[in-house]
Design a protein around this nucleic acid. Sequence first.
DNA 1: CGACGTGTTGAAGGAGCTCAATCTAAGTGG
DNA 2: CCACTTAGATTGAGCTCCTTCAACACGTCG
Lengths: 250, 250
Amino acid sequence: MASLTDNGALSPMVRKLAAWAALSPEDERAILELPYTVRSFSPGGYIVRDGDKPQNSCVLLSGFAYRHKIVGDGGRQILSIHMKGDLVDLHNSLLHTADHNVQALSQVELACIPHEAVKELAFARPTVGVAMWYDTLVDASIHREWIANVGRRDGRTRTAHLLCEFGVRLETAGLGSTREYDMPMTQEQLSDCTGLTPVHMSRSLKALESEGLVRRTKRAVSIDDWGRLAEAGDFRPDYLHVTMPGIPLL
Amino acid sequence: MASLTDNGALSPMVRKLAAWAALSPEDERAILELPYTVRSFSPGGYIVRDGDKPQNSCVLLSGFAYRHKIVGDGGRQILSIHMKGDLVDLHNSLLHTADHNVQALSQVELACIPHEAVKELAFARPTVGVAMWYDTLVDASIHREWIANVGRRDGRTRTAHLLCEFGVRLETAGLGSTREYDMPMTQEQLSDCTGLTPVHMSRSLKALESEGLVRRTKRAVSIDDWGRLAEAGDFRPDYLHVTMPGIPLL
DNA sequence: CGACGTGTTGAAGGAGCTCAATCTAAGTGG
DNA sequence: CCACTTAGATTGAGCTCCTTCAACACGTCG
């Protein structure tokens, strides 16, 4: 009986993929036996730069990272936030040349796997392949929700939505709960997630706080009444495609 | 020597996937031999509804379709536009339950393939599988550009960007050129792509027209100076991951 | 012909931006 | 331990891009 608590460095990847498909013990072992090298980054360090041609797919082992694009007038748009277990760079490495940047948000540990090895595993073990494919589809689903968030919700709602998403994702990653979590992001970074200015992000957060929807202490967020925050953020978690018993569906 | 001009209904799918990976004649034949049923939709018809559990993956054979979400206050955000050859519904069908709507923009012909058959083919023929995976990654890449577009560009720039994207994609699909194309969308739909109001979309288009960047006659668009429009739209086509000799890289 | 969908135009209001000052907390060096 | 620096957060005031509301124009189709 292979144990899930195998202390291979890639176990966060196993945990993540196991959420998408029923992996056999052999599947899990095959993932853990992938060749990899570990790299670490300090906050702000570039993991991938727009235009790079990366040879590796990366799995986030610890810490947080974000993807972003810089537009013509110098503005930055954050495209997604990544945490432990996320396959950060399947996209870029399979697409040959990166069309956006990936940067460390906190201190980050990364396992880099040659993308040929990822491809081989995907096709040698269809269950693993389906799980990886599924993972990329969930990523795209989150992208779609973000398009709707920045396109059609006002500042306060966008902000609340983002806080809800973080709660659910951190809980599924085992890094917090929908009641309380730590998120090491500045308000400038939050504003770049939502297409707002830092000034307006500050005001939106204060508004949510003064309504009693969130409490903040440093970078920690407490949510006393999930239902009210979800309502304020027009948040329904279905687009995350997680089904955890602990997560209130509104 | 299998011919590419095989008149199987699924040839638009072959054409599309062949752009992403070097398919062998056997690969192409295997795609064309997928089981399918053809369905057609009138403009406005729902192909998939939020919450559905579709059993099929769909390929667009002719016409245009769009994905969209409705947010809490009733606003609509269009997430992507699809044209001949696009694998419209891999996402929804593999994710079990749809998190957005897919609707016909014009008269549409669709080939519906049981998603089990798609999955089997993907793993029986890794080259085809890689092409399909690649296709979903390009889809996600377009989503990321849209996040940046609605999040960090002003109305005029967003609009120009969208017109550029249509030009390139229609040209690669063989439905027009970057000099001139038809796009059967109302200004209300265009505004829902960009997170603007119909009124402001009208003004943005007029502005681009009065600057001589586009000419419009009904739903047809002419672009005399691609470089200037691309500049105005902050458009660089790399995120589309197409490499066609005909497309100016700015 | 009237009705309807679509696009255009004007005027007024507002959500969010810009600019700039102030405040706080956490270093850092002496 | 304190002065100094710096990154981040907050607040205010004025401005602008975009929205809202409403009227009107145009073409199509019953």
